[in-house]
Amino acid sequence: MELASSVISFIVGYYALKAYKTTGAKGLLLLYLGFLILGIGTFLRFVTATYFGIILRAFPTIEHRLTGLVNLAALIYMLTQLIAYGLFTATYVLQATSTSSRTAEAGAVAAAAVPIVRLFVIPQLELIAITLLGFITVYTFTNWLLKRGSGAALVFLGFGLMLLSHMFFLLIIIEELSLTFLVLGQVTQLAGFLCLLTMLARVSKTNA
């Protein structure tokens, strides 16, 4: 699931880059960088979680030795996500500032082993991610209210589902339900990316 999310992120990022090259709009450059970093982070998480899963299946007794490495991977993953969401937030802050001064218009593996799942969650950083995504979701919701277009609705749904996925990832700290929340988080995250992919497919079919 994370591999698919990562690929979609790269596709959206590529389109944002194409759009930036056509228009030179800074917001699109930030959007490209955000999706690129999000794609890299999600891909790294997929690779490390798969790698640690395989190692643990083969050598179950070395779990304690992997803890440090898993922590490092989790930290890198969370940081890439925070940078990406930070860039999305910057896009909208920049947009809101320029919009108000111009037109005054209103304005982010299935678990091989459960312990590893929990180690991949850094609650404090998840909370920051939730805050940033909360801001982005509100902005895209406002944009949808103003534009009423299906594209804007899909982007709002996409970021809304990513926000929900991070809420599920945060709940992984509840030991008994770790795996359930992991699966829920990954499914909602993929659904969010699929919304963005659908939007992209619709845009690509647009005729002049």
């Binding site: 389109y15 944002a16 194409k18 759009a19 056509t22 228009t23 709009a25 917001g27 699109l28 959007l31 896009t91 909208y92 947009q95 320029s98 919009t99 304005g107 902005y139 895209t140 406002t142 944009n143 534009k147 277009g149 594209g151 804007a152 899909l154 982007v155 939007m199 992209l200 619709r202 845009v203 690509s204 647009t206 005729n207 002049a208």
Partner: peptide, 20 residues
């Protein structure tokens, strides 16, 4: 080609709430 591409880019940016 530019006109056609611009329409698509405009729709993409509009979906994200970005003014171009």
């Amino acid at each position: 080609t530019f006109v056609l591409e611009f329409v698509k880019v405009e729709k993409f940016a509009e979906a994200f709430g970005i003014t171009i």
